[in-house]
Design a protein around this nucleic acid. Structure first.
Length: 576
DNA sequence: GCCGTTTTCGGCCCGACTGTTTTCAGTCG
């Protein structure tokens, strides 16, 4: 029973309460708790044992009792009772876009349907259209929507979303009817995954702009079209919404549709307490009814007495209070990055030579890279033996004599083996400039085993860095069961650096973890794990995760120059 | 069900679009 399990139970309760038609506020309380628990960097069991459940925002007396019961017994009577009211299939009906709790409840209660197949049948044979308030069109829409049932896998990584968004921007930009155009929502916040894309525009002729939008060649289906909002599905299955307001209201439009939902809820509660009501068109003084409009976001936030917040911070995790009290972090930027400390070459599983990688990095303006080919223990990636590693060290020495304008550090991405042993002996590691240790095997080990492996590597005086510390693959593989809190504490104590891996399929550490690590005094490094020169551009995704983790340049090792990096290495530090 | 520089009770963000309705509920973000 870990944080994700407890969060899942809270979410299931929320969905079942929706089916029952319970108070939306009670439902929201469970959803809030689920979201908070899902992002909680600490192990919920520790929090519970130390009697601090009530300190978690959104957890009151009732939820604390339920969480405790869940942790102690593995079950929750309240949830079991709710489950008994609806067959499991009824909940899956709500995964159909357009089918909410009300329709799912009625379909079950009045037609006895409790599966997607049953719903499809009823939509086809006309049964569904017989329900009061529904007609032919509703049945057609349900039938079509059954083809795009909401699944977690339907969210795409930010790495896939950004190029698609750029294509849309390019296709719409030539239109005379569209003036300003910016992506909003999870794309603008650089969320690790994106469910749909919001494009935000100003236009003098919104109808013409919407016509142009829904007529784009990539559009497979038009979900809706109006003067301020239109929605389409691309042939790739991605939903894209276009929102349009007049020029003078662009600031509030951007703010509103950048979200997040939680940020907006908190911002509006903050505004309401000051007699102001917010929407996408402006700020309304509730006493006078006067509406003020804003052409840009900065003036919108200033009108509320708040500093402008970078979109990456807008997740409802304390950013509004920080903006009010002028305590926002000065977030790291891509321009701050001076080198990449996780780079592969053809010596292991990369596609370019050491020199090609070094030259590509230099062309980006970097001062240094660390060559970190895999060690032999990984088995599959052409890992280096001790003999090949020593050949490589010698070659890098010669390369550094020849190369102008960039320094290649010798290094390794060394496997932490299943039994916790490291792949190279200490006397070999001591010859390297930079040592990364990481896990590519034994993902299913217990939390105790995996944590012990990582902590043991951290405690090795020759290990500088742990790469992709949770091993997760976005939308494909859950993190292994490592106790991150223990890892962060060990890393802080020993001066071991933890990586934010920028590869779009990894993004590991992710935002909330990075933030917790920083709070505990850990130094981070943002690397691309480049296996080809083109991968260096992925740095923007890793920097985005760092920004979402409230990281400043001082928190990130490779924002420093080479001399500062060298002096920060573990072997250069006094013993803890 | 949570929460408190109005409150321990009475609030809880806000609006667009659709389909089926003669004024609105449901769904979504």
């Amino acid at each position: 029973m870990n944080n994700a399990d407890v969060a899942a139970a809270m979410n299931e309760i929320a969905e079942l309460l929706e089916l029952k038609g319970e108070s939306t506020f009670r439902i929201r309380a469970y959803e809030n708790a689920a979201r908070t628990l899902g992002n909680l960097p600490e192990d919920i069991r520790t929090v519970s044992e130390e009697g601090r459940l009530r300190d978690i925002k959104g957890v009151g007396e009732a939820l604390a009792l339920k969480i405790t019961e869940l942790l102690e017994t593995g079950h929750l009577k309240y949830l079991d009772a709710l489950r008994a009211e609806f067959p499991a299939g009824v909940r899956t009906l709500m995964t159909v876009p357009g089918v909410g709790p009300s329709l799912a409840r009625r379909v079950y209660a009045e037609l006895g349907i409790d599966s997607l197949d049953g719903l499809r049948q009823a939509a086809r044979d006309g049964t569904l259209a017989t329900l009061p308030g529904l007609g032919e069109k509703s049945a057609e829409n349900v039938l079509r929507a059954l083809g795009r049932v909401k699944k977690r896998e339907n969210r795409i990584s930010i790495g896939r979303a950004i190029p698609l968004v750029e294509e849309f921007m390019a296709a719409l930009a030539p239109s005379a009817s569209i003036h300003e155009l910016t992506p909003g929502g999870s794309v603008r916040r650089w969320s690790p995954t994106v469910g749909d894309v919001d494009l935000l525009a100003t236009s003098g002729e919104p109808d013409a702009a919407m016509d142009a939008f829904v007529s784009l060649p990539t559009v497979a289906q038009v979900l809706g079209q109006g003067p301020t909002k239109s929605s389409i599905i691309t042939d790739g299955g991605l939903q894209v919404d276009l929102r349009i307001v007049p020029e003078g209201e662009y600031g509030s439009l951007l703010q509103h549709f950048t979200g997040s939902k939680q940020h907006n809820i908190e911002l509006r509660e903050y505004a309401l307490a000051r007699g102001l009501s917010l929407n996408e068109y402006g700020i309304t003084d509730q006493a006078t009814g006067n509406v003020r409009h804003f052409a840009d976001e900065v003036s919108f936030y200033h009108a509320l007495g708040l500093e402008w917040m970078p979109p990456e911070l807008r997740e409802g995790t304390g950013e509004i209070e920080a903006a009010r009290t002028h305590r926002l972090p000065r977030l790291i930027t891509v321009e701050d990055i001076r080198g990449d400390l996780h780079v592969h070459s053809t010596w292991s599983d990369g596609t370019a030579s050491i020199e090609e990688m070094a030259v590509a990095a230099r062309d980006l303006g970097y001062e240094y890279i660390a060559l970190t080919d895999h060690s032999a223990g990984i088995g599959v990636a052409n890992g280096l033996s001790i003999e090949r590693l020593q050949e490589q060290i010698a070659l890098v020495g010669r390369l550094n004599d020849e190369l102008e304008g960039i320094t290649v550090l010798t290094g390794t991405e060394m496997e932490i083996k299943r039994n916790g042993d490291l792949d190279f002996p200490d006397e070999i590691l001591a010859q390297l400039d930079w040592v990364i240790a990481s896990i590519h095997s034994g993902f299913n080990q217990s939390q105790e085993q995996i944590t012990a492996r990582v902590v043991r590597a951290i405690q090795n005086p020759n290990v500088d860095c742990i790469a992709h510390p949770t091993g997760r693959l976005v939308g494909k593989r859950e993190p292994y069961a490592v106790d991150l809190e223990a890892v962060f504490r060990a890393a802080a104590e020993t001066g071991t650096v933890l990586e934010i891996n920028s590869a779009p399929e990894r993004l590991d550490l992710v935002d909330a973890h990075a933030r917790r690590a920083i709070d505990l005094g850990v130094t981070l490094v943002v690397n691309t794990d480049a296996h080809a020169p083109v991968h260096f551009t992925n740095i923007r995704f890793g920097v985005a995760m760092a920004r979402r983790g409230w990281a400043q340049s001082s928190d990130v090792l490779n924002s420093r120059d080479l001399a500062a990096v060298r002096s920060r290495l573990k072997r250069a530090l006094p013993s803890p």
